[in-house]
Write a protein that binds this DNA or RNA. Structure first.
Lengths: 339, 339
DNA sequence: GAAATTAATGAAATCGATTTCAGGCTACTT
DNA sequence: AAGTAGCCTGAAATCGATTTCATTAATTTC
């Protein structure tokens, strides 16, 4: 159906090699020839077949992004950073929605192996370090956002989970809270246990005894947050604050509180993580931890592209970015004066 | 780096043709041969090169989705429907974020022309019918969500904008409103003018004179909604309700009202469109029009795939789906008793 | 057991680009 | 004017799969 390079060549009265030269590096072609070829290309509406090109060049100039859930604005913000930077560097981006399923994640990762894409960026992957390293060891390019996969060839960018979690808890303590729920995501996720770690450290720093029953697992989604709160309420535990491991789960906390007529922040303070755009539309506005999502995406895609091209690995592999605690209305209420 | 089919063949002591047969239709291969080949494939960790396969097969089993803004949950919900159905049908999905720019849209569309993808789904495209038809006439497969592009080869799915807009306005009128702002998106967008049309018709039906100054243009984003409201307030116009052409702009309306201390729905009723997931987290909950987004995505991708495979065009090309007005708190307030 | 039919396999062509290598032409030097 | 350097161009190989066609092996039938 489409015109092929040989058709263009025939029409312009030259060889396919010449057409290719016109289209590519542009070297060594007479002005006359070039314009003849351009004319033919134009008339036939010719576009080089991507498959043929990829096959010959052994690369596709495309990058896959594996996100956990594209309905979560945390991921889409990062993706925008990736997309725009990739676009500027002439790379195409494949966005894959793993829908929080490890199997789907693995499936999409295999697009790497058939060379559909030259490299992959995994955002807060569920797969283990071992599994990821194994793929990288086979010679494929992977970069990771949201955690550090210890492998000399894996560029990573993330924020210090432990650090900001401590800040969150410090903030709550400062406002008089001592019975603070930690709402985890999937317990195996790095984000979950590192944030838990920060929570525990902050409790210790403040000489607050750890109450294991105040830690509940969610799924990083609204539903999981809601259900976790239901379990906590059912147990009739006492607590005055909830630190949710992400904003999506905080949404569930809001819903659970609303149904039970619990006032935020009056009766319960809530803090999330991600500064998901949804968080500032909530009433009360949700306190959260901001991460430079767009920038993280843009930085890591650059590193990945550099690595793929030079095929030599940079000195700097790991990037940490600062996060910022945004104290908004949902936690801006002293339950007792601090002396 | 990777093993090739010829390596597998050598290892298994057969020809590449046989390896290919084992991997594909599976016909005409002895059990012995098959297992030898499978063993070799396994040991070499062989995966067929996608570029070579695509080139030979003249298809890539992949579909592009061009969305206007992946930060808007309207699009991501639809994409989930597309993705899941495509996955079930063994198709890969390329999500492209046009970021509301026609140029980017065009750019991504050209991935069709180089055969990177077999077909494209455009969600509420900005490009004109002519421009889209031109591409289709060249033999490429395009399906459209959110409007009807009149071309015998373009499957389309959408809701009746005029109809639900009338419903929205009827609802507002019933609650006593007569001075209703219509907050349009880009004025050229089909969604904008069809919704405007419904608004006008409903006014007429109810013998309410049309006040052109109550129509303002936004950009389908929060910012555009906010700025439009600022312009309206600056003009000191009187109105008691706002019908925003989508929920994202309604977010802007909320912000503008909050800054000016205007109570929703007490002083101003607000209704949006899309039933964006964000709408039910707002306070007050935003009245809106629901569309079966996931389903729309799933249906249209099926039609597109069918069309691409059979290369014959179905009798049914245009699908309309029902929408539903969700009256929530933001408009649930009678400003005068209706007799 | 021989002939006829069917099943399994391999050799080679093919998809559509790029690129190496070699040859032809131009232009410059002497 | 002849020789040489350098620039353009084309022929052919290549990327890695699939598939047609031909051939060989296996099976069936009489």
């Amino acid at each position: 159906m489409d015109a092929k390079i040989i058709d263009v060549a025939a029409k312009a009265g030259v060889s396919p090699a010449t057409v290719s030269r016109v289209l590519n590096q542009g070297s060594s072609v007479t002005a006359k020839t070039r314009s003849k070829v351009m004319k033919a290309i134009d008339e036939l509406n010719y576009r080089p077949n991507a498959a043929a090109k990829n096959l010959r060049l052994q690369k596709s100039l495309s990058i896959g992004v594996i996100a956990q859930d594209i309905n979560n604005a945390y991921f889409t913000e990062i993706i925008k950073g990736i997309e725009n930077m990739a676009y500027a560097r002439k790379y195409k981006v494949f966005i894959c929605d793993a829908e929080n399923q490890a199997d789907k994640e693995r499936d999409y990762l295999s697009l790497l192996m058939d060379r559909t894409m030259d490299g992959v960026i995994m955002i807060t992957p569920q797969l283990s370090d071992e599994e990821i390293c194994e793929v990288v060891d086979k010679g494929y390019h992977i970069a990771v956002i949201g955690r550090n996969v210890e492998h000399p060839k894996v560029p990573c960018i993330y924020t210090d989970n432990v650090k900001f979690s401590r800040q969150v808890v410090e903030h709550l303590v400062e406002y008089g809270h001592r019975d603070i729920v930690f709402l985890s995501g999937y317990p195996e996720a790095t984000d979950s246990y590192e944030r838990l770690e920060g929570y525990l450290k902050a409790l210790k720093d403040n000489h607050i005894p750890f109450r294991p029953e105040l830690v509940e697992n969610g799924d990083f989604n609204e539903t999981g947050g809601y259900e976790a709160m239901e379990r906590l309420f059912a147990k009739k535990l006492t607590f005055t604050a909830v630190f949710a491991a992400n904003d999506e789960m905080a949404l569930g906390v809001y819903r659970a509180c609303e149904e039970r007529g619990i006032a935020i922040p009056g009766q319960l303070a809530v803090v999330g993580v991600d500064n998901n755009r949804i968080s500032k539309y909530l009433t009360p506005r949700l306190s959260t931890v901001n991460q430079p999502k767009y920038t993280m995406g843009a930085i890591i895609v650059e590193k990945l592209i550099d690595q793929m091209n030079e095929n030599q690995f940079e000195d700097k592999r790991v990037f940490t970015v600062d996060s910022e605690l945004l104290v908004r209305t949902s936690s801006n209420y002293h339950i007792q004066k601090k002396k």
